[in-house]
Every structure is written in structure tokens, then in C-alpha cells.
Design a protein around this nucleic acid. Sequence first.
DNA 1: GAAAATTACATAGCAGGCTATCTATTGTCA
DNA 2: TGACAATAGATAGCCTGCTATGTAATTTTC
Lengths: 146, 146
Amino acid sequence: MEDSKNDNLAYKLHYLNRLLMLQLNDQIKPEGVSQGQLPVLCCLHDLEGQTQAELCTRIQVEQPTMANTLRRMERDGLIRRIPCEQDKRQSRVYLTDRIRPTVEALQQKRDEVIGKMTGRMSVNDISDFHRLLDSALLALETNNEI
Amino acid sequence: MEDSKNDNLAYKLHYLNRLLMLQLNDQIKPEGVSQGQLPVLCCLHDLEGQTQAELCTRIQVEQPTMANTLRRMERDGLIRRIPCEQDKRQSRVYLTDRIRPTVEALQQKRDEVIGKMTGRMSVNDISDFHRLLDSALLALETNNEI
DNA sequence: GAAAATTACATAGCAGGCTATCTATTGTCA
DNA sequence: TGACAATAGATAGCCTGCTATGTAATTTTC
């Protein structure tokens, strides 16, 4: 049976994701940025001053994951957090001046890795790939028992 | 720009993989098995007595990753390791009697999650999905600069 | 046959995902 | 107003991936 030899969608997706994240990491490492931090940089590049909770919602990770990511990013000088006056529980997150000018180049690096991945695909293939991923995402996001 | 709003293949793949692994975990957790352990169980179900290095090659993870996974699986009573007489550096890995009879049911659980993911796809879609993942894998496995 | 290279595996340390739980603040309502 | 509920974020602890490095056994080479 093929599936027991790892020839199944779950294995392929998992392995492809690992390859992709490794190569993405390699591309953005020179700027001192890692794979998990890039979505936060992009999200803040769209709109600075978001709260941790807002970043969680947009990037779709759990709150403690974001808390850890932000801690590392602050440590590495990618973001700064400014406590909110009105609500002392929350902070607003901003890019540092050092990283702000490089975010678009980082997005380009990411797109190059995606380009390598889709190198042998036709335009139709790529739009099918998007469509199939969207369909799979929607199916898994739908909250009911299997 | 759409890509800066996480509407890109890298983000989708990453997110889909996370959803898939979470739901796979939920399905196999009752048997005391987790997502990263399932490929090892399947691989040993095909052929018991493989070495750590052989498992690495088949499952395509780095050796320290496998070492850790095997340590947890031994701790949890999923495998046992028998030192090799001829070559004292290596051990051969076997399923425990407890887990051996359940491996096929676990594979079925995995296939159910995959089924949920592909629920709205046609047979053609699914074969396209395989083809596109294979193409992407091949492109990223090819070892040259972007 | 001994030194050197290789191999098999273990360990340390990090990133980034998760759940569960804690603290402090804010909001609600009787 | 004072108690309780809800919210924002931090922390602890786990898994699974990675790189770098260490150690013991084996193989190769001179």
C-alpha cells in the first residue's frame, strides 16, 4: 500500500512545508530574521501599532506563540512595544527603524523561494495550487467531526 | 499587495500544514501516539528491525530529530531498541507488541483526516494536488541557488 | 598493526508551534 | 460601589524540527 510508504498527502504537505521553511530561513537569515518572524514583519509593515491580539488574529497563531515570537523579535531589535495608556493590559507593536526599510526586500526573498518551488508549474498550475490549498484550508477550518 | 496580507503560497502551505498536523494529532492521541511518531510506526510496520539511520533516510528527517523521536517513543512504550551484535554502534528498532496491532487503525485515522481535507475535491483535483505537491517537492529538493 | 577517517548515535541548544494556567487590568451589573 | 466576569498578555511545559558538536566503534590506509 502506497500510503504506508509515506506517499500520502499528509506526509507530502508536511515535508514540503519543512523544505520551504528551511529555504525561506536561509534566504532571510542574513538580515537577522527567521521564518516565524516574517509574517509579523509583513503584518506590521501593513499597519504598525497593532496589539498582540490583533497580530494573533491576522496571522492565525495562538496567543502564547505570538508572545514568544514577539519576545524574540524585541530581543533581536526587530520590533518595539509601547504600553497603551488607555488600557494598561496591552501594548502596541511597532517596527524598529533598522528593520522597516528591509521588509519589502524580505518579502521579495520569500517570493523568490516560492518562485523556486513553482518553477516548473504553468500559470494554470499555480492558480490550481492556490485553489486546492484554499479548498483544503476551508475544509480543515470547518469545525465538525470528521 | 495581496502577498503582504498572507495570501501567498508559503503562508497557505504553512498554515495548512499546521491545521493538518493538529487534527491528525487529535485523532491519534487516544492511542498515545503523536504526529511526529506516526511515520516511524508506519515505517516499522513495513519493516521492523531498521536502524536509526535507515529510518532517517526513509522518513527524511535529520538524525538528531529521529534520535529524539525514538527516545520519546521508547519512553512511551511504542518501540524497543535491540543493540546490534555485529556493530556495537547501532541498534535495531522494533514495534512493541502493544502498538503493533493498532498501526493500521492509526493509518486509517490519518487517512480520515486527509479525507476531511480533500472532502470538496474531485478525483481529478486530488490527483492534481498530488502532482503539484510532487512538482514543488522536486523543485525544492533540487540543490541549486534560487 | 597503528593512526586516521568514517560512521552511528547522543547531546546541547535554539525556533516555533501547541495547551494549560497565572496575573493584572478592565468591564459589568446587582 | 463592590463583586464577579472577561480580556490582554506572560509563563510553564511539551513536541518536533533544525545545526553543531561529542563519543565510541568500525573501517581504511599506510
